[in-house]
Design a protein around this nucleic acid. Structure first.
Lengths: 155, 155
DNA sequence: TATTGTTATACTCTATAACTATA
DNA sequence: TATAGTTATAGAGTATAACAATA
């Protein structure tokens, strides 16, 4: 009943008390629960979280180049290449040559990309509403209990 | 200055306001910051976080089998095999045949495994002390700000 | 039939190094 | 020389399917 006890009643009796008392383990489980819930909202036909993030940043920063985008999202530059290849192939992002500095490519959303992003923002807000409601129910004060509360979102 | 603004002053001016307003993005960044800090404490010669978790669970549940361990840590059963192979090769874990049910293997820490675990628990507590001190400095009340505060741990 | 440990496969992610074309 | 995009590579992590031994 206490928020600090993240037990599942169907699980066998394994002593996890040490790990469950650490913020590191709690935040990892909480993050996985949140992402699982996001994917629940995105659905089978949905974008990955990373691609959604890429579209969201390009939308608010039209003309941004790949290096800046990678830095903003804290992923390595080489990671952006297959990601943007896919998004370009899907018709959501355009890569235009930058005339002022031909090393750069200027990233923009296509109309289809804008529609896809908006649709996923709607789906994302379903997730956020679910999470907010879950936390509003009874929000633990200490950090560890709060993270375990998040981790139990639709556990 | 406000806790809700996770800006880095060295970064270029990119509008990240949408993602930074979501718990999903904040908890991901917070989790990465926490793990980075754990690895800072574990050091170059240290275990991975997963291997540390495996040792910690076996220590408190001697004789546990691989399937139960996998379920407890929420990793797939096949993942445990190379993990335990490594830990066995390193001399930290023993896999004994279970006489009552010969499908099972009974996992135990070796003396070296116990020493390795204890050493890493000490290093882990350094991390936790650093994190606690960081949060005690000024702990934001709302979840989003709290996560961004965590995410800025040694950012 | 069901379960444990295992193998195999495939895809994603992370982290580097190095190449090319530009500047 | 430095930077942007790219290629290549290697190591983790994730997710499934399937197999042998055992129950």
């Amino acid at each position: 009943m206490a928020d600090a006890e993240p037990e599942r009643n169907d699980a066998p009796k394994i002593d996890m008390s040490y790990l469950e008392g650490t913020i590191g383990y709690a935040i990892r489980r909480a993050q996985l629960a949140v992402f699982a819930d996001i994917y629940r909202s995105f659905g089978k036909d949905g974008l990955t979280v990373v691609k959604f993030s890429v579209l969201a940043v390009i939308a608010d920063n039209p003309g941004i180049n790949q290096a800046m985008l990678a830095e903003a999202l804290d992923v390595e530059r080489p990671r952006m290449v297959p990601l943007l290849n896919d998004l370009e192939k899907s018709g959501f992002v355009s890569r235009e040559a930058n005339l002022h500095d031909r090393r750069n490519k200027s990233l923009k959303l296509t109309d289809a990309g804008r529609l896809m992003l908006d649709e996923h923002k709607r789906r994302f807000s379903d997730h956020e509403a679910r999470l907010s409601a879950w936390l509003a129910e009874s929000r633990p004060e200490d950090v560890l209990s709060l993270l375990w509360k998040v981790a139990r979102l639709r556990a």
